[in-house]
Computed example of a mutant assay.
Amino acid sequence: MNAYLHALKNYFNFSGRAGRREYWTFVLVNLLLGYVILFADRQTAIGDVPAALFLLLILIPTLAVSVRRLHDSDLSGWWVLLAAIPLVGPLVLIYFKCRAGNKMANRFGICPQC
């Protein structure tokens, strides 16, 4: 849970590095929260307003932690734009985010796990 809170504390921080644990914990918790909110929306007559608000609230931290995760592999944050390429782009990004980061300091900072 500390990894999720660390990602939220760095809401607008697009510099530095994020380890695999921080990134994937953030993604998993957001998926679970999203499904809970969608389930609650379907059980009530509120509509999709809470789900839309949740998505808007996590948009910037999701981009920030994604950029920091790419920085961990010594890649520019601009690689996030690959997500705009249908099918191939997201698969390449998943590959980049799954592989281990550099154990040494790189141009984006020191190793977050070290």
Rank of each mutant, 00 (worst) to 15 (best):
Ala83Asn: 10
Arg69Met: 06
Leu5Val: 08
Pro112Trp: 03
Leu81Thr: 00
Leu59Val: 09
Leu57Ser: 02
Asn106Ser: 03
Ile37Ser: 05
Val88His: 05
Ala40Pro: 07
Tyr95Gln: 12
Pro61Glu: 03
Cys114Gln: 15
Leu70Trp: 13
Leu93Val: 11
Thr44Ser: 12
Pro112Asp: 00
His6Asn: 14
Ala40Gln: 12
Phe26Trp: 14
Val27Asn: 03
Ala52Trp: 14
Lys97Cys: 05
Phe12Val: 07
Asn13Val: 13
Arg17Met: 06
Leu82Ser: 03
Ser66His: 14
Arg107Pro: 03
Ser66Ala: 09
Leu82Arg: 06
Ile58Val: 06
Pro61Asp: 00
Leu32Phe: 12
Arg42Gly: 06
Phe14Ala: 03
Val29Asp: 08
Ser73Ile: 15
Pro90Gly: 02
Arg68Ser: 01
Asp74Thr: 07
Ala64Val: 08
Phe12Ala: 07
Leu28Ala: 11
Ser76Trp: 05
Val29Glu: 15
Leu55Glu: 10
Ala3Val: 13
Asn106Ala: 02
Phe39Cys: 05
Lys103Gly: 09
Leu93Ala: 05
His6Arg: 15
Asn13Leu: 12
Gln43Phe: 04
Tyr95Ser: 11
Gly47Met: 06
Asn2Asp: 12
Leu91Tyr: 07
Ala100Asp: 07
Val36Tyr: 12
Pro50Met: 04
Ile110Leu: 06
Val27Trp: 08
Gly101Ala: 03
Leu56Thr: 00
Ala7Thr: 08
Leu81Ala: 05
Arg68Asp: 01
Pro86Asp: 00
Pro86Ala: 00
Met104Cys: 05
Leu33Ala: 11
Ala52Leu: 12
Arg20Val: 06
Val36Arg: 02
Arg99Val: 03
Leu75Asp: 08
Pro112Gln: 10
Ile94Val: 15
Phe96Lys: 14
Leu28Ile: 15
Tyr11Met: 09
Lys103Cys: 01
Tyr35Arg: 15
Leu53Val: 11
Val49Gly: 04
Ala3Met: 12
Phe54Ile: 01
Leu87Asn: 01
Ala18Arg: 08
Val67Phe: 11
Leu93Lys: 06
Arg99Met: 13
Glu22Met: 02
Asp48Pro: 13
Ala84Trp: 15
Tyr11Asp: 07
Tyr23Phe: 13
Phe12Tyr: 07
Glu22Leu: 12
Asn106Leu: 04
Leu93Phe: 09
Phe54Thr: 03
Leu57Tyr: 09
Asp41Gly: 07
Ala40Val: 13
Gly101Ile: 05
Lys9Leu: 05
Val92Asn: 08
Leu38Pro: 09
Ile37His: 01
Ile85Asp: 08
His71Pro: 10
Phe39Glu: 04
Ile37Trp: 15
Leu57Asn: 04
Arg68Pro: 04
Arg20Asp: 05
Val29Ala: 00
Glu22Thr: 14
Gly101Pro: 11
Ala52Phe: 09
Val36Pro: 06
Cys111Ala: 02
Trp24Lys: 13
Ala7Pro: 10
Phe39Ile: 13
Asp48Tyr: 14
Phe54Ala: 02
